[in-house]
Nucleic acid binder design. Structure first.
Lengths: 169, 169
DNA sequence: AGATGAAAGGTTATAGAGTAACATAGCGGG
DNA sequence: CCCGCTATGTTACTCTATAACCTTTCATCT
């Protein structure tokens, strides 16, 4: 399975996180926007693994980490910022959020979502984006954003029905 | 614009509705499932136009039509049935539901959604479905369902920015 | 026709997701 | 140092969806 995405294989996820956070820092500096403690903390929590996190799960994690109550607007504002900067994506079928591994390159939101282990794998397929734009244009439709969410079983879970948990390095 | 979908052009929508309801009746008879009064009524309300309807909007319409209170589980159960039978689709980005014009043919949920007039146009592009399945397979992913939701401007709204309401015949 | 069991619908309460509105704190440039 | 802007805190609320339990409807068998 030579095309298996990184998210699907056992990898050094600490490194994965650190890379993402460092990239986010650089990106925000470059754009002159503020990656505050809260925003960084939310981004880090989202990057804990490759499974999309709900806003309320995130809220609880924040509350536990900061040993005080955290209200919904706090987390939603951080999420809005991260979405605007392209640092995370929203998974509509799950009402949840996941880190974007390539925030600097403009791209559409295309995901494979495993119903067994919950992992969400971001696709990087410009040709697919282009084909979708083409189909839309045939209907006279002017595309502004795309959301493709494919549900099913990831390579791990389809192959090993017994052991359906994604592990990190 | 020869490929303009029916939903995007001025058409005889009463006929559109009647066709859909009759198709639904036949489909349910064929499958031995019950298209009850409530379910039929919900389906008819959803087919009122080509804009996705939220469950709570639907609830109010039901309450008004039946001159009594209708609680959420009532409408959600009807929606679940219609979804299972493929008579409607769920538009995740809108938390809303829309009628399926071809419930008998197995197909994926691919939509163009206009942010100006709210219309949702269902695509029928088996090649696109196949390409998505192919991309997923390259990643060892086994596809069970697809949700493609493309947002932007429909032909009407992109062409006539002044008059952004979809009309029916 | 009457019994019966499953499916459908009614009712109440609550969980989960997201936002409005307003108050406070922190930072950045004059 | 002060002013103004941005970020965060707080309260309350709306919208979306489901759990649990009860009643009704309806097809089928006798």
């Amino acid at each position: 399975m030579e095309h298996t995405p990184i998210a699907c294989s056992h990898h050094d996820h600490d490194h994965c996180i650190q890379d993402a956070l460092e990239a986010a820092r650089q990106l925000c500096i470059g754009r002159g926007v503020r990656l505050t403690d809260l925003r960084l903390q939310v981004l880090e929590l989202i990057w804990q693994n490759h499974k999309p996190l709900g806003a309320y799960t995130l809220m609880e994690m924040l509350a536990k980490a900061n040993t005080r109550r955290v209200a919904p607007p706090t987390v939603y504002r951080a999420l809005d910022f991260l979405l605007e900067q392209g640092l995370i994506h929203r998974i509509n079928v799950l009402n949840a959020f996941i880190g974007c591994p390539s925030p600097t390159t403009k791209h559409q939101s295309h995901f494979l979502i495993c119903r067994a282990c919950g992992i969400a794998i971001e696709l990087d397929q410009p040709e697919l984006s282009q084909q979708i734009i083409g189909v839309a244009q045939d209907a006279g439709f002017q595309v502004e954003s795309q959301s493709l969410e494919v549900s099913g079983l990831c390579a791990n879970c389809a192959g090993n029905p017994g052991q359906q948990e994604h592990r990190h390095g």
